[in-house]
Amino acid sequence: MAKVTIDDVTIEVPDGTTILQAARMIGGDLVPPAMCYYSKLKTSGGYCRTCIVKVEQGSAKDPRPMPKPVASCRTTVMDGMVVRNITSPEVLEARSGVVEFLLINHPLDCPVCDQAGECHLQDLAYEHGKEETRYEFERREFEQIDIGDKVQLHMNRCILCYRCVKVADQLTDGRVHGVLNRGDVAEISTYIQNSIENDFSGNVIDVCPVGALTDKTFRFKSRVWYTKPVDAHRDCPHCTGKVRLWYKGDDVLRVTARKDKYGEVEEWICNECRFDKKTTSDWVIEGPSKVDRHSVISANHYENLRVLKATIDRQKKALPHGEKVNLGQGALDPNNIHGK
């Protein structure tokens, strides 16, 4: 076991835990954002650099600080390690730099992007980005390629997190897609425009943090926040069959895997469940899904209020006795509202 302190909160975790996992065990707002790390995929993470944190003290044995910010998703904790995330202005500054880098070539076509509302890049930009861009050049564009009749690839939106490549490597046989070229023209592609065909290829849609890989059967059908998530299952010969159905009215518009609050799927699902079973009679309904992401996707689920209350409670506890959190009139300074 190793004792690690993240933003002044101490937790004991098993050896080999990464800083990010330890932070997730603590939970709350000190969890670094992760765009490429995916706990269900081996060797994922380390690429996007949004989860960087400062290690103030390497370990109890060797208390020297680490010279550079480290990727929390790939750095394992040591006993006595002291980590700073949101309490370090340096880290926040560096992170806003990374967000800016991720956005300079992103098309920002959210109004026509199917991922909008459940996009991790949107969340990240709201939380850590700047209000306006300093990039004044033409954004990078890729030639559209067709990778089959189920999955739509929009390379322009890709942030090269490599998650889909790892899914194809670890979940399916004979990966046909990967990263071609290098530098800022590197792209997710299939060699000689192969189409991606195997039973679990649809999972690349779920792991994609942005709108680079989307569901062709759901394309332009509805904004995600107009659809209602319902947990359901069926007897599936290929997978566990535990899915989330997204309803609009009586129609199942989309089937996805169930995701936790970090946007990671709980269990992979097969293409048959995802693309072919789109009537209620195919499924046994379990009930409405709880979505506790803090972004647009959970609008109308009243989850945000609950989170807000919890935050206020925590702040009350953190304050010295006698002081009260003033939430009445006058507590809000209109000058401090920047629309974030």
Binding site: Y47, R49, R182, G183
Partner: peptide, 18 residues
């Protein structure tokens, strides 16, 4: 450096070109 960046991590991939 822009030409030779491998494109794996974002600051180098995007920053060198910028």
């Amino acid at each position: 450096y822009h030409h030779e960046s491998c494109g794996q991590c974002s600051p180098c991939r995007e920053g060198t070109g910028w």
